[in-house]
Computed example of a mutant assay.
Amino acid sequence: MIYKKDANFPYPILTNTSTSYENSHFTLDVQLHENVYNYRFDISYEIDSDFIKRLLEQGKAQLILVIQSKDNKFYKLKQYESYIEIPKSRISVSKRTTIQLHLQSKEDISYIDNNDLSEFYQQFKDEIIVPKNTILGFSNVVIFDGSITKPLELFEKKLNPNLLSDVKIELGNETIIIHYKHEQLQFNNLPKSNSLNNPYIYMGLQKALQRFIVNNGDGEQVDLDEIDNLIDPLDIKLHTLMRKKMINELRIDNIDEVIYKISDRIIEKYAAALKELSSNGN
């Protein structure tokens, strides 16, 4: 379960609001990333108690990541493990997903050497023994609202009857602009019109990623981990999106693979829209 308020325990427990410890500090920070197949939770935490940190180092306690969305999921973390990857088939990350880190005992724990306790407990800490599989502390709650960067937010659509072609892809200052010569090319009168526009989205991403390599690499490839101080706003958006999808390298010969990972199966959705139109007799 997720502890959102102080709970009563018959023994000292480490939380950010507890008075059981002199320095009550157990904070969690989580960054959520995803690709086509997995969610990745990058985890960092701080624990003030030296006693608790010794228990973790000695294998007498363990960290458990609790993820609460439509249901509760529990994941044991190894010492110094900084992230976990979970297949999308095994977890649902929706709006108001909450995450908390728990400390749990792996054996009976004596508090006789716990010098981090408040003065109240110092008088009888030698009598405190916490049973195996018992919670020793819990962190703050991290809340995700379900908003993950979507590639379509990179795009604008404009109608220009003076175009010399049916469709023109322009790389603007902050967006990829799709210019249409005729309104019917946008398929607005058909169901799934957004999906039917996906080939244009694909073309725009190809053009933008090619320029990204030119702007930030050697013309053939670019290491996304080594990039800093990006200036172009569109490049900044693309870089953020690629890193969220756990992409480390962009090359001329892997652009299509990168588009697949960052675009949430736009070609599959395009094909499904065509199939639906066909089955409906349109």
Rank of each mutant, 00 (worst) to 15 (best):
M1W: 00
K4A: 12
F9Q: 02
P12A: 10
T17K: 10
S18G: 01
Y21L: 07
T27Y: 11
L32M: 10
F41T: 02
F41Y: 13
F41Q: 01
D42W: 04
Y45P: 05
E46C: 03
I47W: 10
S49H: 04
K53C: 13
L56E: 09
Q62W: 00
L63W: 02
K73Y: 13
Q79R: 05
P87A: 05
S92N: 08
K95H: 11
H102M: 07
N114C: 13
D116N: 13
L117Q: 09
E119I: 04
E119T: 05
I129V: 15
L136C: 03
S139G: 11
V141H: 09
V142A: 00
F144E: 10
G146Q: 09
L152H: 11
L154K: 03
K157Q: 11
L159V: 13
N160H: 08
S165P: 02
N173E: 15
T175G: 01
I176V: 12
H182M: 08
Q184A: 05
N189G: 00
S195D: 14
S195Y: 10
P199S: 02
Y200A: 01
E226L: 14
N229T: 14
L234E: 07
D235F: 14
K237E: 14
H239E: 15
N248A: 11
R251Y: 01
R251L: 01
D253F: 12
D253M: 06
Y260M: 08
R265N: 13
R265T: 02
K269S: 06
Y270A: 02
L274V: 00
S279D: 14
